[in-house]
Simulated scan of single mutants.
Amino acid sequence: MPDQSQPSATEPGASGSVAARLAVVRDRIAAAAVAAGRDPAEVRLLVATKTQTPEAVLEALAAGVDLIGENRVQELVAKAPAVADRVAAGALQVHMIGHLQRNKINQVLATATGLETLDSLELAQAVSDRCVRNGRTGDHALDVMVQVNVTGEESKYGVRPDDAVPLAIAAAALPGLRLTGFMTIGARLPDPTGDGAADDGSAEDAVRAGFARLRAVRDEVRASGAPGTSAAVNLSMGMTGDLELAIAEGATIVRVGTAVFGPRVTATTL
């Protein structure tokens, strides 16, 4: 299975409590938004909980987190009981941000409020069918985003940008789905702690170009006026190492894990 994680840079606030690290991340988001001439309130923080224990997740929620994302269905299901009350009360949203296989759709629908990794019409139709079967339509439809591979890297999931517009328009018309935007994983940035040559800016330019491409896809879909596309406003892009670049290019959601929880552990204790 391709590895969708992004190597992290050295993090400010890498030590200390989850609440302290969250404060640093929120400051980064606000500063990046202001630098881009945007209102910080336009950018939402999704805390990626991959490999974290339910206890660590609850610590983040206690610090005010209201949106989390999980990469693996097994972890999504395992952590669901710990956050079920908050989800039921509407105080927490849970997004699936990892690749979804069709044989695990029911597990995701039982635990997630959103899916950011829709990458084929076949998957969209299968998710729609299950939503309809479960009565999850109308106001209870599942929020979905189309995942776009803006870098063309084989190691990343997502539909090609040229195919993203027709897929999004088709998915938006399916019952049980509410198209809310688009998601991508940016190109890799050099590790600033490494011994390689200093970046001349070309790597950042490549990352920004990918994010700009996702924004163009979103704008084209919304401009189409096709049924169900008016709510497709979100751009889920930018992670621990490149969130400033993503915000400069219009991100409305940034997905951050390492900067909140510290370096990932190698195994999950649930």
Rank of each mutant, 00 (worst) to 15 (best):
S5E: 14
Q6C: 14
S8C: 14
E11R: 15
P12H: 11
S15K: 14
R21M: 13
R21C: 10
D27W: 04
A30L: 09
A30F: 05
A36D: 03
P40H: 04
A41R: 14
L45K: 09
Q52M: 13
A63S: 14
E70W: 12
N71T: 04
E75M: 02
V83T: 15
V94C: 09
M96Y: 07
G98E: 13
N103G: 04
L118G: 10
L118W: 10
L121I: 15
L121W: 03
E122P: 00
S128A: 13
G135S: 08
G152M: 05
E153T: 07
E154C: 00
R160H: 15
D163T: 01
G176E: 08
R178W: 00
G181S: 01
T184D: 01
I185N: 03
A187R: 01
L189V: 00
D191G: 04
A197D: 15
A198Y: 01
A198N: 01
D205M: 07
A206F: 01
A216C: 08
V217Q: 05
R218E: 06
R222E: 08
R222T: 08
S230N: 12
L235A: 07
M239E: 04
T240A: 13
L243Q: 06
A246G: 12
A248L: 03
A251D: 05
I253P: 01
F261H: 05
P263W: 07
T269E: 15
